Simulated scan of single mutants.
Amino acid sequence: MNFPEADTPPALNKQVSELRDEAWPPDSASAPGTFAHDPALRPVSMLLVDGATVLAALDILTKELVHAGQRYRAAGLSTVVTRGTARGQGHGRRLVTAAREAMAAMDLDIGLFTCDRPLQPFYESAGWQHLPGAVLIGGTPQAPFPSDRPGFDKVTLAGFFSSRARSHRSAFPHSRIELYPGEIDKLW
């Protein structure tokens, strides 16, 4: 199921909040400051639902970016989570694959996001491509938030959707990509 984030039905939204709290307990050091996304990034929530139960959820955020002199319509994955009792059954992979396919159909040029290094094989199994040496720079130009900051162990993954993006693919590995999604979603 896909909804603009603000239009997610309350009963489903409540379950998604519970899944996020399960994955990132609010009192833990790994918990994001907030799960609310900047409306300027046009968040879309994707949910894998069985009956009335949310098994997995993620958000897609979009914005334009400029890299190596080219302007791209870009999107990324955020807050990817699978219900603890449903892990290991392929639900997360199914949803992440569906998100990549949905993004390819959204008139986007590229999908870009970071993940913890141990999750790289999971995302690659869902069709995403690793960009070796690539660093996403989040935050803002005045307050950058790079994915290679101390204490992070992130890798950058991508999907090249448009022919223009595919023809410029070589500009992305081993580069610093100025994403700048803002202060709310410092790094998607």
Rank of each mutant, 00 (worst) to 15 (best):
135 V>L: 03
66 V>P: 05
17 S>L: 07
82 T>S: 09
161 F>M: 11
188 W>H: 03
122 F>Y: 08
15 Q>G: 04
144 P>K: 04
182 G>Q: 05
178 E>I: 04
158 A>C: 13
100 R>A: 07
144 P>D: 04
86 A>S: 14
57 A>E: 08
29 A>S: 08
114 T>G: 07
141 P>F: 11
103 M>G: 03
48 L>W: 06
74 A>L: 13
94 R>C: 05
135 V>H: 02
82 T>P: 08
7 D>P: 01
35 F>E: 05
147 S>D: 05
113 F>D: 01
8 T>Y: 09
104 A>N: 04
33 G>I: 06
61 L>W: 02
91 H>Q: 11
134 A>S: 06
42 R>I: 02
11 A>I: 06
114 T>Q: 12
84 G>S: 14
115 C>T: 13
85 T>C: 09
167 S>A: 14
37 H>R: 13
150 P>E: 15
74 A>S: 15
148 D>G: 04
87 R>V: 04
41 L>Q: 02
182 G>M: 04
94 R>Q: 15
30 S>G: 00
175 S>G: 10
188 W>I: 14
50 D>I: 01
129 Q>A: 13
1 M>N: 09
184 I>K: 08
31 A>P: 01
165 A>W: 08
98 A>T: 07
61 L>H: 03
64 E>V: 04
171 A>T: 15
22 E>V: 12
36 A>D: 13
119 L>P: 01
10 P>A: 15
180 Y>M: 01
154 K>F: 15
97 T>L: 07
186 K>L: 10
107 D>W: 07
55 L>I: 03
40 A>T: 11
15 Q>L: 05
177 I>D: 01
174 H>I: 02
130 H>K: 09
140 T>M: 04
2 N>R: 15
80 V>Y: 02
120 Q>S: 00
114 T>Y: 05
121 P>Q: 02
184 I>F: 00
155 V>F: 11
4 P>K: 03
167 S>I: 00
187 L>Q: 10
14 K>Y: 09
28 S>F: 05
130 H>Q: 06
52 A>N: 06
88 G>W: 04
24 W>V: 12
6 A>V: 15
122 F>I: 00
159 G>A: 15
117 R>Y: 07
132 P>K: 12
89 Q>H: 12
186 K>P: 00
78 S>P: 00
52 A>P: 00
112 L>K: 05
146 P>Y: 06
151 G>R: 12
150 P>F: 08
13 N>R: 15
135 V>Q: 04
131 L>G: 04
151 G>V: 10
169 R>I: 00
159 G>C: 08
109 D>E: 12
188 W>Q: 01
130 H>R: 13
17 S>C: 06
142 Q>K: 15
36 A>M: 07
151 G>E: 10
68 A>L: 11
177 I>G: 01
117 R>W: 06
113 F>R: 01
